[in-house]
Simulated assay, not measured.
Amino acid sequence: MKKIALLILCILQFSCSGQGVGKINGVSFVASREEVAQGHIDEVVKVNANHAAIMPFGFIRDVDSPNIVFDTDRQWFGETKRGALQYIEMLHKNGIKVMLKPHIWISHGEFTGTMAMKSEESWQALEASYEKFILNYAQTAQEADADIFCIGTELEQFVKNRPGYWKRLIRKIREIYKGKLTYAANWDEYARTPFWEDLDYIGIDAYFPLSEEITPSIGQLKLGWKPWKEKIAALSDEKNRPVLFTEYGYRSMDYTAKKPWLVDLHDEKVNLVAQANALTAIFEEFWKEDWFAGGYVWKWFIRHKEVGGDQNNRFTPQNKPAQEVLSRYYRSE
């Protein structure tokens, strides 16, 4: 029996070995109240991550408000420019590359993709405010020598209604920041994003619905990926750009792959197997593809020992079987 178990382990290690080679094996490194210490970074290293997304925030009152408030002393340290610089410095010291990925937070957690103005005057005000916000962080990315800069996250209506603005904004960003650029399009938005040719990666927040099973098997999940994967690969070929999952992940709960984007306090039963299976399926489907650049798992908190665990049904893989899946597929040997 022991020999059989050892053989299975060896097969698993062999099948996973090398899948993460040359890929962006990233974590979405959640902004905190405090500075990052070496002990926080050690846990990222242990999971074999070679990239981290750093996410400063700007705040908007509601979906039709044009004014973005950012980089204030009322924000958490990690949500500010000073915090982003400190986080990036610490990660770079440990050989971990960084995508700087500024986010917008709308009061009461309204979805940013619905943000739209009601008048031309308000649209112009939003454009001016967003430009100030994003160019501030483009400068931060340049100062910190960030490896990738994400120009926006899940802003479908803003992009749809003002495509010319975004084209001009990308040119302004490139005048400041000299690294690689992407945009984090929502899973149901990316196919209509009009400026992929102007960026270096097709960025997707990959919360695609895959299965309505309580605990879908890896095989069922891979089958669920098939139609989505074909469309993603076709777009990559059409635009001649690699695909980057700017976010991917699953909650450790029943039905995790039915609506993977759910972020409310949805009280489904904890299901650690479903989360681990879903991560395994995404790695096996994408990390071996030449057109696929990698991705950033959602999400990773700096106080590792205090989060996640077997009673937690949220997104983080920390202190769950999903963490072992992540570490195994991120291994680069």
Results as ranks from 00 to 15, higher is better:
H103C: 07
D62I: 03
R174I: 00
I134W: 06
N319E: 13
D64S: 14
D264S: 15
E127N: 08
K160T: 04
M253D: 08
L91E: 04
M99D: 04
R331I: 03
K178D: 11
T256L: 11
G294H: 10
P260T: 06
G308P: 03
F14Y: 14
L199I: 05
E284Q: 13
S122K: 15
E35Q: 07
F208G: 03
S15W: 10
P102C: 05
F195M: 12
I41M: 06
K222G: 09
Q142I: 09
R314I: 03
K180L: 14
H92F: 00
F133R: 03
G295Q: 10
F70M: 06
R61T: 13
L223E: 15
A31S: 15
Q124L: 14
T256Y: 02
K118T: 10
P227K: 08
M1N: 07
W228K: 09
D310W: 12
S217Y: 01
F133P: 00
W261N: 11
P216F: 02
G309P: 12
L279S: 00
K101S: 08
E34K: 11
Q139K: 07
R314Q: 12
E143Y: 12
H92P: 02
D237Y: 14
G164E: 05
Y177C: 09
I106L: 08
A185S: 14
V45F: 03
A141C: 05
S327C: 11
P209D: 08
A138R: 01
T316N: 12
F149L: 07
I60R: 08
K258I: 01
L199G: 05
Q142W: 01
F57Q: 15
V270K: 04
G224E: 06
V325M: 08
I88F: 07
K3Q: 15
T193Q: 09
A128H: 04
H108E: 14
K259D: 13
V21H: 10
V21R: 14
L169S: 03
Q38V: 09
A281W: 04
R241F: 07
N136F: 11
V159I: 12
K299R: 12
I134M: 11
I148V: 13
R241I: 09
H40S: 07
S119C: 06
T153K: 00
P216T: 01
T140D: 03
K2W: 09
K101Q: 10
F57C: 13
V243Y: 06
L135D: 13
Y165D: 00
K46N: 14
A49V: 05
R82W: 04
F59K: 11
G308A: 06
S119G: 02
E127Q: 13
T140A: 14
S122P: 02
D264H: 11
L12K: 10
W105D: 12
W287N: 00
Q142H: 11
G58M: 07
G249N: 09
E121W: 05
E289S: 12
V63G: 00
V45H: 05
S28C: 13
K305G: 03
K178V: 01
K305M: 04
A125E: 14
V159G: 00
I173M: 07
G179A: 05
V307K: 13
T80F: 04
T80C: 07
